[in-house]
Design a protein around this nucleic acid. Structure first.
Lengths: 118, 118
DNA sequence: TTAAGTACTGACAAAAATGTAAGTAATGAG
DNA sequence: CTCATTACTTACATTTTTGTCAGTACTTAA
């Protein structure tokens, strides 16, 4: 949770105003968000499929990260009125519009991380 | 400081191995790192100039972020043996190689943040 | 002797992010 | 009636990040 008036939060918001980079990075910068976005680049996935894709994450955190991505308009959540439940996640248009940027970020990482295989 | 064996840290490292995006974002994702990198894109700056560029940050945090960027090989620190002291920061080659990516991240932010001026 | 300038450092505190373990709701199958 | 299935939620604990405030070291200039 975020205290609206902590220096920490105020700073965050001030930075967004004069640094587009900081704004973007705040949206995609959570621990598991890159993995989630990456998985969704190929199309929609059910909650359980996301979990399989990202085995290390706990359910609580996965849901938290999904909710934030949804709140920030990068993914949408579609619930089917079935039992057992079915929920699908997919990128919104804004999320799709990140594709080239995400690819670029990924490429830089692949090329520069120390333990890459030659 | 980081406890090398917490689940938190282990997860961070595991993610790096199979998600280049996550690796990159970890390097540039600190609160003030985008602002610092952005300022250094135009050339080297003294510590005091960086401070002027980013007035909100406290000295302690500014130094912390600079040290991390340095440790991760994105910037270099050059000390002149003068009094009063002079220290200059500039991008390394790896830092320079981020330029197009950083521009891309910045552009996305400028175009999508809610409170942009039309 | 005192002050000014620069680039910090240290002790401490608050806030935010991440993780663990267990539990819930609805329904159809056996 | 019990179990399996799916997508979560809740209470709690730990770890990490960010921030505050005061102080330091060195030398030159007044």
């Amino acid at each position: 949770m975020r205290k609206e008036s902590s220096t920490n939060t105020l700073n965050r918001n001030k930075i967004h105003v004069n640094c587009g980079m900081a704004y973007t990075l705040d949206l995609i910068g959570g621990r598991w968000k890159p993995s989630i976005l990456w998985a969704l680049l190929d199309g929609k996935l059910r909650y359980s499929e996301l979990k399989k894709n990202i085995p290390e994450v706990s359910e609580r955190i996965l849901v938290l990260q999904l909710r934030e991505l949804e709140k920030d308009g990068l993914i949408k959540r579609k619930v089917y009125a079935e039992v057992p439940p079915r929920v699908e996640y997919e990128l919104t248009n804004d999320g799709q519009s990140m594709k080239p940027m995400l690819q670029c970020i990924s490429d830089w990482g692949e090329q520069h991380r120390p333990d890459k295989k030659n």
